[in-house]
Design a protein around this nucleic acid. Structure first.
Lengths: 256, 256
DNA sequence: CGGCCAATTGATTAAACTCAATCTGCGTGG
DNA sequence: CCACGCAGATTGAGTTTAATCAATTGGCCG
């Protein structure tokens, strides 16, 4: 993990786009949000930059790339708990020891911002609108993980895969990273297997099945959602858990 | 004035016992924590008191009894996302619409305290130690749910059940509700099945298997942990995700 | 051209599910 | 006090989904 400081971009960061897509942010708030992201790190694809049991040095905000929170249980079995996409936090809340309960591994090259705990406090004390945004992010992460539990516990392989694809499509869309009906998809089928609790062989067959049914197309690093309505119906997908809105991003908090 | 953890009165509420078991709480903090629990509700066993999609009216603190956060997907399938025990919150963080992403259902008669959003804000602004306690509770809930994902995605039926039993044993112990080597267990085998992503028939056979191996005994509403060490070894159970403290050596497993 | 990682396919096995009966403990109304 | 009803637990038999084992193929890069 190589660390370098960079100057402010003119374009809004993913976290600003994400929060801005749901709340009306004032210029001051956006500025602050951008200003706390100056301490940047680049993480190489494949790098496990947070180890289970080790101490969080700071909170990460993903600026670009995909990260997997995962648990490796001794005998080679692995479960991807959740995926962190641009605009997401790693280690926003920590326990008293700041001890990680999972590995965080870069699935692509990643750019992240390192946020000091004091800056998070500052948000809570001086930027109430942003603080409510953090609260929203927190409950959203929890709900995403809840859906993951439903997928793993009660859905078939085809339901799991189509549900995951739709979740990623909606989440990427919120930060402006989804195509009209496609997403870039950097995960290997092994990764998908470990995200969905399947063997890699079965993950492969499940991809093939969705393709055969005319629901998706996929290549090395893209998935095309050919028939979103059928995908939703197969997956039993309701996007409510992602926003808490009736699918319509609407500003509900006015400028301070 | 600061008081020792052990000197918390036995009449202190579960949430005070839980936080007091981990942080040194001042008398003022304990008093405040108790005072915000005056608005109490009784919830009858079987009552789904929060509906998926409906609005949270307040935050609940469970004072006694067990609650399941669960998702019911149209066709009769159900997944218990997580269990809330005495001292746990329901709806601590909410999204902008305060919309629940899951049902909350009482698995026993429950007593809960209703906390106004303004009191939660008050904690963050005036009781920094308690605020850090809430942050700890938040990340703990997330980590518990992460373990649930590992159970559902990557563990066998016997591993899942023994892991769940151990988790509940440790969590109940933290609030003084576990026996020396037993817990009260109000869930039906149907509930266990829906928590572990199994059929009820298989849940039953898994109970039988653990009993046959001399790991547990169970009756209508108790589970005895006959051989905790063997249970831990079978489950692959490491309590780190529950506390984040070094109460016990935490081996960091490295898979090469 | 190799080498390598990921994807794909075929064959077989195993874990868990479904379906269908019972069985059991317990509370209740007569 | 007892028969009845009922929810939950238990058991047996057969089926299904997904896992495992074992090659093979495909694409990309140095």
């Amino acid at each position: 993990m190589e660390i370098k400081n960079e100057s402010l971009h003119s374009e809004a960061s993913a976290i600003s786009r994400k929060l801005g897509g749901l709340i009306l942010l004032s210029a001051t708030e956006v500025e602050f949000l951008e200003s706390i992201q100056n301490n940047r790190v680049r993480i190489e694809k494949g790098d496990t930059f947070v180890q289970e049991g080790s101490e969080f040095l700071a909170t990460f905000i993903i600026r670009s790339g995909w990260v997997a929170r995962e648990r490796n249980i001794g005998d080679g079995r692995r479960q991807i708990i959740s995926l962190a996409l641009p605009g997401d936090f790693i280690g926003l809340h920590v326990n008293f020891k700041r001890q990680a309960a999972y590995d965080a591994k870069a699935m692509t090259d990643v750019e992240a911002a390192l946020i000091e705990p004091s800056r998070v406090l500052e948000i809570h004390q001086q930027y109430p609108v942003l603080a409510s945004g953090l609260s929203w992010s927190t409950v959203r992460e929890y709900n995403i993980l809840g859906e993951q539990a439903v997928r793993l516990g009660r859905k078939s392989a085809t339901e799991r895969l189509s549900h995951l694809i739709l979740e990623l499509y909606h989440r990427l869309d919120l930060v402006g990273l989804a195509g009209p009906e496609s997403i870039t998809f950097p995960l290997t089928q092994d990764d998908v297997a470990d995200a969905l609790g399947l063997s890699s062989v079965h993950a492969n067959r499940t991809f093939k099945e969705l393709k055969k049914r005319g629901l998706i197309e996929y290549s090395r690093d893209d998935i095309e959602l050919i028939d979103i309505e059928k995908l939703k119906s197969l997956a039993g997908f309701n996007p409510a858990f992602l926003s808490g809105f009736d699918n319509e991003p609407q500003p509900v908090v006015k400028v301070g």
